[in-house]
Design a protein around this nucleic acid. Structure first.
Lengths: 156, 156
DNA sequence: CATCTTAGTTGGTGTCACGTACGAATATAG
DNA sequence: CTATATTCGTACGTGACACCAACTAAGATG
């Protein structure tokens, strides 16, 4: 199990494999988003919830699908968000079992602020790239996302 | 606060802004990684821990920096990983206060399996791109990561 | 020595995720 | 139209995680 070096890196990593690049990039993006969210006092998943609700009024079940969570998880998530006044629950009139979740003005304001800061940070991250490179990066990511969404059916 | 539509999307999103593309892509990658991890019975953060330990034997404090967590969080993280036999703690002989964390053979095997599956999924995700596009995407992400790492000093 | 300071753990709190079990509403069968 | 399923959301219990504050042990500094 390798000798017990004091603490400095055993092998200073030199090369970035494809997967590592993607994984690291995703951690970087998520970290950025999470930082801004926690500065506003809420979590990444709460931010994601609010983000989804910006253009939808889904039921708990639909939210569970969108966020890939168990419905009981979403129930608690929405409960906490509602307690903070960020979302609002309404009983559906069509199917009185289901609940429609809508973002409140306060929640919308908050999520938009986070989005704004996040956007600024992303812009800073992409600064080392030339404008054409940035466009290419976004285009390629877009292709991947579209292809994946098409394959999985669901929204986006 | 918008009329109470039954449940279908109020506004079917049509366009992907830059930030949305990056955010969505990062969620996609993270979700993929987390799926494989949880199939093996451990969490994303545990996977990240093991990933970091593949080529390092850091102290708790160094881990806290690498993972951007509080040292008490890392303490618990390592404790749980050790209880599962994935990681081993050793008191440093140089500074008897500090603890060196090393991955075990079992942990290494596990994390390599997850990495393998993850790599396969990423390859599938990138399939819609031409080979040259894939290379470009990785290169651009690499540039961003390198520039960011340089700015922040730390590892990668 | 008597202090800082640093490394890590412990304890308390809150979020989050899951599975299970439940009541209410709806759908389906006979 | 009752009787039985199915579906929707919630409640409860459990465990992982994250933070902060307080603490012990060990090292550094005067």
């Amino acid at each position: 199990m390798a000798p017990l070096q004091p603490s400095p890196p055993t092998r200073p990593k030199t090369k970035l494999s494809n997967i590592d690049a993607l994984a690291q990039a995703s951690f970087l993006i998520q970290g950025t988003l999470e930082r801004h969210a926690s500065e506003r006092g809420f979590s990444l998943i709460q931010t994601r919830l609010l983000g989804v609700l910006r253009d939808r009024q889904p039921t708990i079940n639909e939210l569970a699908q969108l966020l890939e969570l168990d419905k009981s998880s979403v129930s608690g998530l929405v409960e906490r968000a509602e307690r903070r006044g960020l979302v609002q629950r309404t009983r559906s009139t069509l199917d009185r079992r289901s609940v429609l979740v809508a973002i409140t003005d306060e929640g919308l304001t908050l999520v938009n602020e986070v989005a704004k800061r996040f956007e600024a940070d992303v812009a800073a991250l992409l600064k080392p790239l030339a404008a054409s490179e940035r466009a290419t990066l976004i285009r390629l990511l877009g292709s991947v996302l579209v292809a994946h969404a098409a394959e999985r059916g669901v929204d986006f």
